[in-house]
Write a protein that binds this DNA or RNA. Structure first.
Lengths: 201, 201
DNA sequence: CGCGACGTTGATTTGCCTCAACGATTGTGG
DNA sequence: CCACAATCGTTGAGGCAAATCAACGTCGCG
C-alpha cells in the first residue's frame, strides 16, 4: 500500500476527530503516530469471543458487525460500524478482561487502531482527547438508548421501518439476515414484514 | 434542612466522583459550588416530555424512573436511577432541544444538579472532569449494551431473572409493574413468569 | 374510610418462531 | 473463468410466547 494512501486515511480520522474540538499541531502529530493502519478481509475478525479487546478501532472503509453467540449457537448483532464510525468491545477494553463478543468484517475493510496504553497516554497528556472521546461515547449512548426504547415498545415492523429510515446507507448494503439479527427477529419473519410493507403501498 | 446535611450529601457526590480520578482541593470547591441540592416528592417530575433537559442530575437518595409514553399512552421505562447514580436526558441535554422523555421520582428523593453551562465551565477549566464524566458515560454505555443484547436474544423469563440478579436492591424496592415496563413486557405476563419461576423450585 | 395502584388469574388473540423446502444470488476455489 | 457451494430471500404449516381484555381481592395512601 502506498504511503500517501495511509496518509489520506489518517486525514479522514483527523477530520472526524477535530469536528467537535479542533486539534493543534502537536496533538495531530501524536494522533498520526499512535494510530496504526490495518487491512481486514471480508470475514476477517478483529476480535474473538474470549479475547481481551486491545484496540479502539476507527473504520476508514468497509463495514463490521459486532455480535454475541448464544447457547443455541445463534448470532445476535449488537452493532454495525461502517466508515467514520468507531467499534470496540468497551467492556473488555476498559476492564482488560476477556470479552464475550466477536467483531467481524462484513466487507473488506481498512481500519485505524489505537491501543489502550496509547489512548491512556493521549488522555493524560492531551486533555482535549478526553472531551473528544467523551462526546463520541455520548453520541453512541444516545443511539443505544433509542434502540432500547424501540426494543421495549415497538413491533418488529416498526423497528424495521425505523432502521431503514435511520440508516438508509447501511440498510442498502447489508443482507437482510444481518438486519434481522440486529432487530432481534428471525430473517424469515423479516421477510414477511417486508412483504406486508410492500403490499401496503 | 440543616446545612450540614447538604454538606453530607455533597460528600457522597465527592466520594462518587473521586473514585476513578481523585480531585484536588480547587476542583472540589468548584464541584460543591456548582451543584445545587433539591428535594423531590414521590411522583414529582424533574423532566417532562417536551422540556429541554437543563440539568445533569446525581441522585443522593430516593429513586427515579425515566420513561417515554407511546401513541397508545403506555409508559416504557428506559432507566431507573437510585442513590449514587446519574440521570438525565442526554440527548436533550446536549442538543438543547426538547426531549421526549419524563423523569419522575418513584420515591421521595434528594438530588444534586448541575446546569449545562456550569458543566461546560467545569470541562473547560478542569480537564479532569472530562475524564470523570467520560468514564461515567462509558459505564452506562456498557450497561445499555448488555441490555440490548438481552432484549434481542433472551426470553422474558431470562430477562427478568437477569434483572433481579443484576439489580437485587432495585428489584426489591420497585413494584413489578415498573419492572415489567423496563423489561418490555406486560405486568400480567410478568406475573405469570414469576409464578412459573416459583413453581420451578 | 375510600379510592387508586398493585398483583394475580383465566380466556382469547396475535406476533413471532421453528422447521422445512425452494429458487436465486453470490462468492470462491480449482 | 467457470462450476459448484454457500448464503440469501422467500413461502407455508404449525406451535409457542406474549399481548389483550376482563375480573377480582389486597394493600397503602390521602
Amino acid at each position: 500500500m502506498a504511503l500517501h494512501e495511509e496518509a489520506k486515511h489518517k486525514e479522514l480520522l483527523l477530520a472526524h476527530m477535530s469536528a467537535a474540538f479542533p486539534l493543534q499541531e502537536k496533538e495531530i502529530k501524536e494522533l498520526f503516530l499512535l494510530f496504526t493502519e490495518r487491512k481486514v478481509k471480508r470475514r476477517g475478525f478483529i476480535l474473538h469471543q474470549g479475547d481481551i479487546c486491545k484496540h479502539f478501532t476507527f473504520v476508514v472503509s468497509g463495514c463490521f458487525k459486532m455480535y454475541a453467540i448464544d447457547q443455541a449457537g445463534k448470532e445476535h448483532n449488537l452493532e454495525f460500524a461502517a466508515e467514520n464510525e468507531w467499534v470496540s468491545d468497551l467492556s473488555s477494553f476498559y476492564s482488560e478482561k476477556p470479552g464475550s463478543v466477536y467483531i467481524e468484517a462484513i466487507e473488506p475493510a481498512v481500519i485505524l487502531q489505537i491501543t489502550r496504553p496509547d489512548l491512556i497516554y493521549l488522555y493524560a497528556n492531551y486533555p482535549k482527547f478526553n472531551s473528544t472521546f467523551r462526546i463520541i461515547i455520548e453520541r453512541k449512548y444516545i443511539e443505544l438508548q433509542n434502540r432500547v426504547l424501540q426494543n421495549i415498545s415497538a413491533t418488529a415492523e416498526e423497528r424495521y421501518v425505523n432502521f431503514i429510515t435511520q440508516y438508509p446507507a447501511l440498510a442498502s448494503r447489508l443482507p437482510n439476515t444481518q438486519i434481522a439479527s440486529y432487530l432481534g427477529i428471525t430473517s424469515e419473519f423479516l421477510s414477511k414484514v417486508r412483504k406486508d410493507l410492500a403490499h401496503k403501498r
